[in-house]
Every structure is written in structure tokens, then in C-alpha cells.
Design a protein around this nucleic acid. Structure first.
Lengths: 111, 111
DNA sequence: AAATTATATTGCAATATTACGATTAAAATA
DNA sequence: TATTTTAATCGTAATATTGCAATATAATTT
């Protein structure tokens, strides 16, 4: 108990849920939006930007990286982060596909 | 500790994170996809469709309903569920906006 | 080499989530 | 009204997540 029963679902369902879950936290949304706002990659000022302790931010960055939502390259003492299109585009495609299908069969709505 | 520090983030960041989080579980993705597959609303067979106990499914449905990802109307003894465009479209807009912005400034990528 | 700077890791406390058995609630039917 | 059917709620165990202080690591600068 307490553990998600992943074996019960398809590989794709688990994959997409994992990526979505990684963005399901305001701090990680804030990180994504900060990376968007800045016109380039940022090196080493995420910690100053967010109201969380450094280890906490490091943890959130790790999760975003693990799911290909951001990517980082070592740049001397600091790390240069930017958005990874890979993850974002997967989400974009997933939701626009669902939205499109919804529009096509609007007729059948009974609720 | 243990609690997300929501006060630290904007209202919109918290709202979008809450909706996204609600879909960040394979069972809830499976529910969404089942509702998509069926061409109309479904009344009372979600429990037979998913490999989880009835109280667990009820709990997942509650979370999806809370975030406007599905909606349900009482239909006699059972409840008729279908996808709520409200939540889905919010997600669709959010991610396509980010994907668009990303395409526009592809030039600046340094990672 | 010592000090500095930036990030990661460890360990842990507080809280949240997941799952389900047991029970309850509410409507339909016998 | 008693029974059946369907879904919600309660209570609880197992596990996961969040957040941070302390510490470690790794590259840079003095």
C-alpha cells in the first residue's frame, strides 16, 4: 500500500504520468517559467530567484532534469540550465491531441 | 516541512501546478484515456475497467473532478462521467504557449 | 595550497499520497 | 419495506514527497 501500482498500466501511461507529475509542483512550474522569462540559459542564479533553500531547489532541478523538462551543462563552477524541448513537446503533443479529439466529438457529450 | 510552500508562489503557478498534479498518476491518465476512447460518457463501468479497488477509483475520480478534468452527473443509481474540456483546455493552452515561445527563441539556446 | 563559490548528497522530520477493507448513503427494484 | 446496486466516506497501513541543516564535492580564485 502507499505505492502506485505502475505494473497495472501501460508503459506510455506511466511515462506520460511521470513527466506530468514532475511538473505538478509550484516550485517546478516557477523554475520552468523563470527559464522561459530569461531569454537565454541561466547559470547559477536560480537559487537567488526562488524562495526555497538551495538543497530544495537542487532536488527540484534534479526531478525536472530526470524527465527531460530541463537540461543543464557544467559551466565552470556553476551549471547552465535551460528548458529541454523534449519533455515540453511531449506534453504539448499529448494535450493538443486530446483537445483535438475532444473538439471532434463534441456532439456526444451527455454530461 | 513536508508541506509544499504554496504561499511562496503566484496564484497562477499554484493553480496550474494543481491541475497538472491531478493528472500526474497513471491511474488518472488511464481514466482520462478511457473516457476519451469511449465515444460518449460512461456510466458505472470505470471500476470494471481499471485494476484498482472501488474506493481507490472513487478517490481518483474525486481528484479529477476537483480540478475540472472530468465532470459527472447523477444518473439514477450510477454516475455518468465524461471529460471536462475546462481543465484539459487549460493544460493544452499552457503547454502550447510554452512550446510556441520556445520555438520563437530557439536561437538563444546555449545548452 | 587555502579560500571561495556553486551545486549535490545525506539524513531526517513533517506531511501528503496511494490503496483498500469496512462501512455508509442513496436510488432502483423486487 | 427489504433487497440490490452503485458510489462515497472513514480509517488506516505503507510509501512518497517536501523542505532544510549539515556536509560533501568540484571547480575557481587568491
Amino acid at each position: 500500500m502507499g505505492t502506485t501500482k505502475s505494473e497495472m498500466f501501460t508503459k506510455h501511461q506511466n511515462e506520460i504520468a511521470t513527466i506530468i507529475k514532475a511538473l505538478g509542483h509550484p516550485a517546478r512550474i516557477a523554475i520552468l517559467e523563470y527559464l522561459m522569462k530569461i531569454d537565454s540559459c541561466i547559470c547559477s542564479d536560480i537559487v537567488d530567484e526562488l524562495p526555497l533553500a538551495q538543497p530544495t531547489i537542487s532536488q527540484h532541478l534534479k526531478e525536472l532534469k530526470k524527465t527531460n523538462l530541463i537540461k543543464g551543462t557544467v559551466e565552470g563552477t556553476s551549471i547552465c540550465y535551460c528548458i529541454d524541448e523534449n519533455g515540453i513537446e511531449k506534453l504539448e503533443r499529448y494535450f493538443s491531441s486530446i483537445a483535438n479529439q475532444l473538439n471532434e466529438k463534441k456532439k456526444n457529450n451527455c454530461c
